[in-house]
Nucleic acid binder design. Structure first.
Lengths: 213, 213
DNA sequence: CCATTATAATGACCCCGGTCACTGAACGCG
DNA sequence: CGCGTTCAGTGACCGGGGTCATTATAATGG
């Protein structure tokens, strides 16, 4: 009814969560994920250890969520990039350009170690967790849109739907990124991604046509 | 010089390692990886906790090594399968058949959870670790051989070497497997793998030819 | 305005993977 | 045979992630 304090309980809770999140982010940036433990975080935030677990499931999940937040921002970048390309550019070339752009962003802005953590988390304990960390939804959507355009202009002829093709693209990029994370300095993500997508795109062109035997 | 005991120190050490490994395997099979801790293992093996770490780097690595051992056996299975195919079968069809066979084996004999653990480990703390857990070396070699055959019969015409093409295949399969691990019941590995490889193979056929613009 | 309920917050505690200073037996050597 | 040296083996100990019974207080309702 009346407002006894500045914050309602909900607001207070949200503020605490934010305080913990901010402390964690700050400390992680300064010292790295491994060198910072939960006690450091809650001490810096001025709350008790238990409070951390009121608001976050686990340290790993917090880290993954943090990285994922950042990845979401890059997803917007991809769409902006795609929209900046000349509209008359063949879809094929646009997809290739995008594949290169993604490699640039992942390599330069996200980094091998962070991608590795993200992928590790996704593989970890099933619990509907990865509904949350559902990496690359926007990118998948972008691929759908682009392929949809290619199909409607009949630049691609394929019995597969835009969604299915997009899934193949995203799956392929997962493999490329995984390989990069594991092999890091010996695997050039951009170079491999471009070659791989060239093959895939050739394959799609030819997909409707009869194959030998 | 003279033989005071049954076992030399080396032999004794190897026996201890084996005893620990066997205990771990047995307990893991019975109760699952998570439910068994190091104390359980060493107690069952009748040695001290420290001995575990004399012979194994960590619990995770032991688990990964164990799974990997098993995966190595399946690698042999793939080659046997390949050799069982009629020699006059077009390489293209053989690759597709193999892609299907791999999906069968991974799905039925290894399982989603174990593949996930293996991939997680591979992504984990770089340390030359993954030199050891270097999953699928034999499979990669098999792909090289098959593609080499395809190139030498001119069934494939490609500027890429057999090694490069094999890398693309393996990378693609990594992506497919990763996606399967993450999405499990909603992603049919075999179906997706077959479709994906059809596209890739079409792409290779067309790869040498000039592309539109 | 007090009684009841819901839930944010607490911190002592547990669990477990991993460490390390130390022990003692096998080995090599004069 | 005695004497270092090496190294498998030991187990008390630690660090840190995660838990849970308990407390404090806002929201609710009579």
């Amino acid at each position: 009814m009346q407002e006894k304090s500045f914050k309602s309980r909900r607001e207070q809770a949200a503020a605490t969560k934010q305080k913990i999140y901010a402390s964690a982010e700050q400390l992680f940036l300064r010292h790295g994920f491994d060198a910072v433990n939960i006690d450091d975080i809650v001490k810096h935030a001025g709350v008790a250890k238990g409070s951390f677990y009121v608001h976050f499931e686990s340290k790993n999940l917090l880290i993954a969520t943090m990285i994922n937040h950042y990845v979401w921002k890059t997803d917007d970048e991809y769409r902006a990039y795609w929209e900046s390309l000349p509209p008359d550019l063949p879809v094929r070339d646009a997809v290739l350009a995008l594949a290169g752009k993604i490699a640039d962003v992942i390599t330069a802005s996200i980094g091998c170690k962070n991608m590795g953590i993200l992928y590790q988390t996704q593989l970890g304990e099933s619990n509907r967790t990865h509904a949350m960390i559902d990496y690359n939804r926007a990118l998948y959507q972008l691929f759908c849109d682009i392929i949809g355009k290619g199909l409607s202009t009949h630049e691609f002829r394929s019995p597969l739907s835009a969604y299915e093709i997009a899934r193949h693209f995203v799956t392929a990029y997962r493999g490329l990124t995984f390989e990069w994370c594991v092999r890091d300095p010996d695997f050039d993500l951009k170079e491999q991604a471009l070659r791989h997508f060239e093959i895939l795109l050739h394959g799609l062109d030819a997909y409707g046509s009869p194959h030998s035997t």
